[in-house]
C-alpha cells in the first residue's frame, strides 16, 4: 500500500534542509509506529520519497511524499498520529491511498510561488506590471547555468522563457515588500528556481532588488499530462 501525503513547511522550519526533513519523517514514522516498508540489504532504509526538494530558506504550503507501507492503515489515523508527533510548522494536510501510480517526482511539472521582495520602483507598481508583461512577451529569456560536462562545470546559456508560466503582481504587504506570484517549471523536464527567476527579472528590468531579502514561499505543486495541469492529490 502506498500513501501519498501533502504537507507544509513553514516559518523557521524553512531553514531545515531536505536531508534533515527526510530524517525528521523517518524518526516520526518510528515514534508513531507507522508500518513502513524497509529496503532489503545490509543497511536497510525506509521506503518513502519526497517530491522535488525545496531549497533551504523557502517556505511551502504544499509538499508531497509517497510512503510505502507493509500493511494497510486507516488514513485518518495516519494523519492524526503523524501530526501529533510532527512540529507545528510541518504538518500533514491531506493524504490518500494509491493502488499504483507513477512516482510523485516524475509527474510534477510546475511549482507556484509567492515571492516577496524590495526594489526601487515600489511607488508605481502599475509601471512595474507593464514592464513585467513586456518582458514576458519575449520569446526567449536567457540565463547562464553551470552544467556538469563530464567532470568539469561549464557555463551554458539556457532559455528559461518556456519555464515561466503565469506571473501576477499582487501588490505590497505590510512591510512594503512587493508580492508577486509566479508559476515556474520544475522537475526533470526543466527546472527554474525562484531565485534564478528573480535574478533574470532584476537583471533585465533594472529593479535594484535586494537579492539578500527575498522571502519565497511555494504555494502549490502541479502535475501535467497531455496539456492538463492538475493537483496530484
Amino acid at each position: 500500500m502506498i500513501i501519498r501525503a501533502k504537507f507544509n513547511k513553514k516559518n523557521y522550519l524553512k531553514y531545515i534542509s531536505h536531508l534533515d526533513l527526510m530524517r525528521l519523517f523517518q524518526r516520526t514514522f518510528n515514534s508513531c509506529r507507522i508500518p513502513i516498508k524497509y529496503s532489503e540489504g545490509f543497511n536497510p532504509h525506509p521506503k518513502f520519497s519526497i517530491a522535488v526538494p525545496l531549497s533551504l530558506g523557502i517556505e511551502s504550503e504544499e509538499e508531497y511524499m509517497d510512503i510505502e507501507l507493509l500493511e494497510n492503515i486507516a488514513i485518518e489515523d495516519f494523519i492524526e498520529r503523524m501530526n501529533k508527533a510532527l512540529p507545528d510548522d510541518i504538518q500533514i494536510i491531506n493524504a490518500v491511498i494509491l493502488d499504483k501510480s507513477s512516482s510523485i517526482s516524475t509527474i510534477l511539472k510546475w511549482a507556484f510561488y509567492e515571492i516577496k521582495f524590495t526594489h526601487d520602483q515600489i511607488n508605481d507598481l502599475s509601471i512595474l506590471e507593464e514592464k513585467i508583461n513586456k518582458w514576458l512577451s519575449n520569446e526567449k529569456i536567457f540565463i547562464s547555468k553551470l552544467k556538469k560536462k563530464k567532470r568539469e562545470k561549464v557555463e551554458t546559456e539556457v532559455n528559461i522563457r518556456p519555464l515561466i508560466g503565469n506571473v501576477v503582481l499582487k501588490g505590497l504587504d505590510e512591510n512594503n515588500y512587493t508580492i508577486i506570484n509566479v508559476l515556474l517549471g520544475i522537475g526533470e523536464s526543466g527546472n527554474l528556481k525562484p531565485v534564478q527567476f528573480m535574478e533574470a527579472l532584476n537583471r533585465d528590468l533594472n529593479l535594484y532588488v535586494d537579492m539578500e531579502l527575498l522571502l519565497i514561499k511555494r504555494l502549490a505543486l502541479y502535475a501535467e499530462e497531455n496539456g492538463n495541469i492538475y493537483s496530484p492529490l
Binding site: 523557521y12 522550519l13 531553514y15 531545515i16 534542509s17 534533515d20 533551504l56 530558506g57 512540529p87 510548522d89 539578500e212 531579502l213 527575498l214 522571502l215
Partner: peptide, 16 residues
C-alpha cells in the same frame, strides 16, 4: 531572517 539566509546550517539557530 536576513542573516539566516546567508549562513551555513541556519537550523543551528532556530530551535523548535
Amino acid at each position: 531572517d536576513k542573516v539566516l539566509m546567508k549562513v551555513e546550517k541556519p537550523a543551528r539557530y532556530i530551535g523548535m
